[in-house]
């Protein structure tokens, strides 16, 4: 019932954040080479960090908005596919690591089932709107900023057992 001490929740620093909104669908395939087009697809940085997440129809999250992703987005805009919206402050990033991570999240959702057949998913965790993707050894979770305090408290209660 309580997660082992190795499971921990880390609040990451929230920096520049972009969402790309496409002008509707069908998208007709990846309009730019390297674009994560399938539902739930994620494009990763060379070091493995998630760079661009397709978490909703016609919507992508660029959590760090690094140079190469910005270039990709600029190309997509150039191709007339959609617009980029600066959403700095909208999502609070977290990382959940360790052996109890699945158990902690299972208290609110079977994350494995939500991620079946996809790399990222838009979900509701402890009543908080969230986007989740796997990391080695755990999960990267973005929580809608106004809910972040509630999310942290909910996870904290379970980690304390």
């Amino acid at each position: 019932m309580s997660a082992p001490a190795t499971c921990r929740l880390e609040r990451r620093s929230a920096g520049p954040l972009l969402e790309f909104a496409a002008f509707g669908f069908p998208l007709g395939g990846a309009f730019v080479v390297g674009w994560p087009a399938a539902p739930g697809a994620v494009r990763h940085e060379p070091d493995g960090r998630p760079a661009l997440l397709h978490f909703a129809p016609a919507r992508w999250l660029a959590p760090a908005a690094e140079a190469d992703v910005r270039a990709l987005i600029a190309a997509a805009i150039e191709a007339g596919a959609g617009v980029a919206v600066d959403v700095e402050g909208k999502w609070q990033p977290f990382e959940l690591h360790g052996d109890g991570a699945d158990r902690v999240l299972a208290a609110t959702l079977d994350v494995g089932a939500a991620l079946e057949g996809r790399e990222c998913a838009a979900v509701t965790l402890f009543d908080c709107p969230a986007v989740v993707t796997r990391l080695p050894g755990g999960y990267a979770i973005w929580i809608r900023a106004s809910y972040a305090q509630h999310f942290e408290a909910s996870v904290g209660r379970l980690l304390r057992g």
């Binding site: 954040l17 909104a21 002008f23 617009v83 600066d86 959403v87 909208k90 900023a145």
Partner: peptide
């Protein structure tokens, strides 16, 4: 036209 919730941004 695209619609983006920026309430928290």
């Amino acid at each position: 036209v695209t619609l983006t919730d920026v309430t928290e941004a």
